[in-house]
Design a protein around this nucleic acid. Sequence first.
DNA 1: TCTATGATTCGATGATACTAGAAATATAGA
DNA 2: TCTATATTTCTAGTATCATCGAATCATAGA
Lengths: 110, 110
Amino acid sequence: MKNTDAIAALSALANDHRLAVFRLLVQAGPEGKAAGDIAAKLDLPASSLSFHLAHLTRAGLIDQRRESRSLIYSADFTAMNGLVGFLTENCCGGAACAPAAATPGKRKAS
Amino acid sequence: MKNTDAIAALSALANDHRLAVFRLLVQAGPEGKAAGDIAAKLDLPASSLSFHLAHLTRAGLIDQRRESRSLIYSADFTAMNGLVGFLTENCCGGAACAPAAATPGKRKAS
DNA sequence: TCTATGATTCGATGATACTAGAAATATAGA
DNA sequence: TCTATATTTCTAGTATCATCGAATCATAGA
C-alpha cells in the first residue's frame, strides 16, 4: 500500500457517517447491502449517503455492484487489511511486534 | 473504543504529515523521538509539526514526556491496536474472521 | 413508451482544517 | 540573572469538506 492510498483510506474513514457505513458493511460481510438499506439503517438522506459511498469507493474501501435497480455495496477486506498492515508496518523497528490481518471467511451456518 | 475515539484517531491519521509522524514513532518503538528530531527528519517547520503533534496527542495516538529541554513523543500502541480492533470488529457478522493485534515487544539486540 | 423506483450528480452554503511566521513559554547552564 | 535552546501558542490567510434539496440518470414492468 502506498502512502497516498493510506491517506485516502484514512480520510475516508475519518467521518462519523462513513465510519458507520464501513463498519456496517464489514459486519454485513461479502454479501453487502443495498444503498437504500444503508440509508434506512443509518437514517441518512439519499444524496448525503451517496456522497459518502462515493468517497469510500474512491478510497478503495468498498466495492459496488448492481443488482437490478439496486446498487449493492460491500467492504473490500483486502483494502482493510492492507490499511491495518500499513499502520503497524515495521512496528518497533521490526522486533517482536507481529501484526496480523483478518480475512472475510465464509459465514457460519446457524 | 468508542465511536468518537475512533473518529478522532482516524482523522488524526488522515493527513500526510501526521501519518508520517505516527509511522515514524511506531517504528521508533517505545523509546520515542524528540520533536526536534522529528521536525528534522520530516523537514517540517517547528510550528507546523507542533500543530500535528498536538493533534495526534489529543487523539490519544501518541504520548509525550519531557526529557530536559526536549519533549519526547512515542506511539501509543494500545490505542493503535484498539483502533485496528474497532475497524475489524464483528467482521462478517462474527464468523471465521479473527483479527489480531500487535504489541510493542522489546527490541531485538543486534 | 409510460410510470415508478432506486440511486447519483449538481449547486450553494456553512463549517472545519492546514500552514507557517512571530511571539511566548519552559528548561538548562554560565 | 542572563542567554541559548527546544518547543508551543497565537494569528490570519487559504483551502478543503459536509450537507441536502432539486434535478437527473438507470432499470424494470405494464
